[in-house]
Structure formats: structure tokens, C-alpha cells
Nucleic acid binder design. Structure first.
Lengths: 144, 144
DNA sequence: CAGCATCCCAAAAGATACTG
DNA sequence: CAGTATCTTTTGGGATGCTG
């Protein structure tokens, strides 16, 4: 199994931990929950996932080939993999139309849209601070 | 060179493009800038980078070994690499104290703190939606 | 068209040993 | 202590062929 921890909790266990966190924002997380959150962050804070997420957010429903064309540099294998993982995590829906030739549509779920919104601050940060970062990199590379 | 695009722009070129973006939020980005932003996102939206960022945000100045202890599962190689990249991007400072045994302190810069703040929404999203995601994964794994 | 399967190579990550 | 150097393992990703 890809993530052995993913099945150790009943939904109510997670819900209780969640409620506890909400009530005690300064309390340290349950290590198991912390690990699940870190795993989740690890999956969504992925280059391809982010690019697909933003593309679907901007353009709505898209077919496999359209996504492949617009996500620069992604291989078909990684796109398939990324889409499957996002589907598994509930970020998008995959709709297969029984026609010839086959047609498969991908679209964000409300959960996917909310994640995209959560990342908005990071995109804004990246655009706002691009110059500062590039400056820092130049300085670092030319230091004695 | 790690990123051949990183040195093709003078700061004022980037600044002008930035201003244009601010003035035309719906206009498509200059492809070169878009690429730089994507590269930057690719570096900061990295599992280890995020974990180190949050750790330093919460605990302030930390030494190498303290970070290694608290970032679960990171190897010293990846930690060194991650810290160097973050330093290069201007997210943190690395202070070497000339003592025996050696002591090296790491602390976020204002830029690093602002990135951490930008990621706040993502952490909140992950905690809030952990249960929904885990449910989705269980359903996906047990589908017919 | 939208993929899955397979093979292969390169790059990234991990484990371990060693050093100023 | 805070790394570097080295070696091994894992993963990423291109290429190709095949299928419903």
C-alpha cells in the first residue's frame, strides 16, 4: 500500500482530532494526524499537481490532451499519475464518455477549488517576490 | 548552471513585467516570467522546504542538528541541500560561529517569514480537509 | 483519443563512512 | 557539530508499442 497510515483511522477519530485542534490552536498536533497532514501537503505541494490545479481552475473542464498541451514539460506518464492521485484525493472528477473516439473530461471538485484558493497566496507571493529571490540567487552565485 | 533562465533578466526587466501584471491582472504572463514563477513555486512548494519553513517559523533560530531531529524522516544530505537552496533563494540566513565544536544557526529572513505566511492558507486547508481527503482515498481504494 | 504496459536511462534520494 | 564524500537504491521520465 502506498501509505500504510492512511487506513489506520476511522473518520470519527480524525473528526475528534480535528475538533481538538480547532479548540486548541496552540496545542501540538497528535503525531499521527500531523503525519497525515504532512503527507497530504507532500502530495498537493507537488509541481505537477499545482500546475494542473491552476490550469483547471482557470479553464474549467478539460480533456487529457488539452492538459498535456498546456502543462509545459509534463510527460504523459506523469500526467496520468498526477491526475489519478488528484482524483484519489478528491480534488478532481474524471468523467469517461462512452463514445468513439473516447473522451475523458477532468474538472475540479469543490475540494479542488478550495485548495486552489488556498494556494492563491503562494502564487501572489511568488509573483511579488520574484525579483527579490532572483537577486538573492545572483548574489549567492557570485559571492567570494 | 542550475537554471539557465535565472540570469537572462535584469532586475528592471522583471520589475517592469511585475508592474504590467499588477496593472493587467487578466493578461497572460510573459512566458519567461511565467517560467521563472513556476520554477520558484517548484522550489518552495517542496515537502522538505515547507517543513523546514514551518519549523523555523514556529521556533525561530535553530541549529542544524535540532532541525534534523524535528523534521521527521529527512536525511542530512537532503537537509543540507534544502537549507542551501533556501539560503540561496533568500528565505533564511546561515550564521557560522567560529567555535569548537562548530555552531551554525539558521533563521528565517523577512522574505522567508512572508512565504511562511503565504503558505498558512494551505496548512489550514490541509487540516480542515484531511478527513474529506482520507474518505475520498478510502472510497477510491475500495471502488469496484 | 486516452490511456496502460514495458523497457531503459538519468536523476534524485537514502545510507553510511569519514573529517575539519 | 556540521557537514562532505561515496555508494547504493529508488524514482522520474522518455520512448515505444498496444488496446478499447
Amino acid at each position: 500500500m502506498e501509505n500504510p497510515l492512511a487506513k489506520r483511522f476511522a473518520p470519527h477519530e480524525i473528526a475528534e482530532a480535528e475538533a481538538f485542534i480547532e479548540a486548541n490552536p496552540e496545542a501540538p498536533l497528535d503525531p499521527r494526524i500531523e503525519r497525515l497532514v504532512n503527507d497530504l501537503i507532500g502530495r498537493v505541494a507537488d509541481k505537477w499537481t499545482l500546475l494542473v490545479l491552476e490550469l483547471l481552475e482557470e479553464q474549467g473542464t478539460l480533456r487529457f490532451t488539452r492538459i498535456a498541451q498546456q502543462v509545459e514539460g509534463i510527460s504523459q506518464k506523469m500526467l496520468t499519475q498526477t491526475l489519478r492521485q488528484m482524483e484519489r484525493d478528491g480534488l478532481l472528477t474524471r468523467t469517461v464518455h462512452p463514445v468513439v473516439p473516447p473522451r475523458v473530461d477532468y474538472a475540479l471538485t469543490p475540494l479542488g477549488n478550495s485548495l486552489s484558493a488556498a494556494f492563491c497566496g503562494v502564487w501572489v507571493w511568488a509573483e511579488r517576490n520574484l525579483e527579490a529571490v532572483e537577486d538573492s540567487r545572483r548574489r549567492f552565485d557570485t559571492r567570494d
